[in-house]
């Protein structure tokens, strides 16, 4: 069952002669339980695509359908509510809150949606355990290694049990081995669950752990490495 549909999405900045096209007519479909790696050189439109799917940017044209519902027409307030409830975000440089412990960083997500309840604490402990961080639960980010911070960031993105995870360059600050571990961990977590994941990376080796891959060059889809990614696109 397709969870995410990106239909003919284009994004331009500026107008007239000063107009710059960041994305041009990008389309793909992603099913539940699948991890899509979006590859491409710097400036190819990867992060713009991620921002549009997250509702942080509006496409100039095209549609984003998640769970059969268009999200590209939502107001900023509605888009924020949508991200709180349905989207897990992992930033390139983790953006953990430096004065909160690892566990408190996880609890920040339910905190933004309302009260922190007992089940949220249990889920946070469970996720920290799953990512091998139970001993680090009460450590602040400055006391964690780069890999640990990135794992905390991924665990935080899972706190609202999202339908879609959007991951931006999760391994850019890690060495190859640690980067591979993080991506494999992410892939294992998504596999077989009622969610999907779009991971932006510039590193083709990291894409090996993904189920599918999409290559962007100059804002256009250059190729898809798995059957079905483009085939079923509208």
């Amino acid at each position: 069952m397709s969870l995410l549909e990106v239909r003919n999405v284009s994004k331009s900045y500026g107008s007239g002669h000063a107009s710059v096209t960041a994305l041009s007519d990008v389309s793909f479909v992603l099913d539940e339980g699948r991890l899509l790696a979006v590859l491409g050189p710097s400036g190819s439109g990867k992060t713009t695509l991620l921002s549009i799917i997250a509702g942080l940017l509006r496409p100039t044209s095209g549609q984003i359908i998640i769970d059969g519902k268009p999200i590209h027409l939502r107001s900023n307030r509605e888009a924020a509510a949508f991200r709180r409830s349905r989207v897990g975000l992992v930033f390139q440089d983790h953006h953990l809150v430096h004065y909160l412990t690892a566990k408190e960083n996880l609890l920040l997500v339910p905190h933004l949606s309302g009260r922190i309840q007992h089940q949220h604490r249990e889920l946070a402990s469970s996720l920290l355990g799953e990512f091998g961080l139970e001993a680090r639960a009460n450590h602040t980010p400055s006391m964690l290694s780069g890999g640990e911070r990135q794992r905390v960031a991924i665990a935080r993105a899972l706190m609202n049990e999202p339908r879609i995870m959007l991951v931006d360059e999760p391994t850019s600050n890690l060495d190859t081995e640690r980067g591979r571990q993080v991506v494999e961990m992410l892939s294992r977590h998504i596999s077989g669950r009622e969610m999907t994941c779009v991971m932006v990376t510039h590193d083709p080796r990291m894409a090996e752990a993904a189920d599918e891959a999409l290559h962007l060059i100059d804002g256009r889809v250059h190729s898809a490495d798995a059957e079905g990614v483009l085939a079923s696109a509208p």
């Binding site: 900045y13 960041a22 992060t47 713009t48 991620l50 921002s51 942080l56 940017l57 390139q92 360059e169």
Partner: peptide, 12 residues
């Protein structure tokens, strides 16, 4: 503050 800047930067 544009939340989109958290995703590194908008590429353009």
């Amino acid at each position: 503050i544009d939340p989109a800047t958290a995703l590194d930067r908008a590429e353009h």
